[in-house]
């Protein structure tokens, strides 16, 4: 599972930021996870329960903000919500040329700390 690696780099970043802000404790970590990011939210949550103990973020709340996938059909000039089985198929014209507009996000959004 690569969620562990993702969680480790997010935590490292969070602790560095909290430290340089002079915080002693991280209370909340907010992460944005797109539906097409390749990251499973539950696996990410589990990874955090493994790595938080013993750090300044021990006991912190992990908030995962999901982002839905949105695709765009250049022919129809329209956005649509793709379903996973017909990823690039425009529901209006049936073409397979759609591009992903949203859903690949994997961001450390915000920290709350003491």
């Amino acid at each position: 599972m690569h969620e562990l690696g993702i969680a480790e780099s997010a935590l490292e970043l969070a602790l560095t930021q909290a430290h340089s802000a002079g915080a002693s404790r991280v209370l909340r970590i907010v992460i944005r996870v797109g539906a097409l990011s390749g990251v499973d939210a539950e696996a990410l949550r589990f990874a955090f329960t493994v790595i938080l103990p013993g750090t300044a973020a021990e006991g912190a709340t992990l908030q995962i903000d999901p982002v839905a996938a949105i695709a765009y059909c250049p022919a129809c000039q329209k956005d649509f919500f793709p379903d996973t089985d017909h990823f690039f198929e425009c529901p209006t014209c049936g073409q397979l040329c759609a591009t992903v507009k949203q859903g690949r996000e994997l961001d450390l959004v915000r920290l709350e700390m003491l």
Binding site: I6, S24, D107, V109, R110, L111, M113, L114
Partner: peptide, 22 residues
């Protein structure tokens, strides 16, 4: 470190990062 428990009101700080993890 500050012991776990509800923080005192007004002491929580928020920083906006908006960093892509990759």
């Amino acid at each position: 470190p500050t012991p776990p428990g509800d923080p005192l009101p007004g002491t929580v700080r928020t920083i906006d990062l908006q960093v892509r993890l990759l």
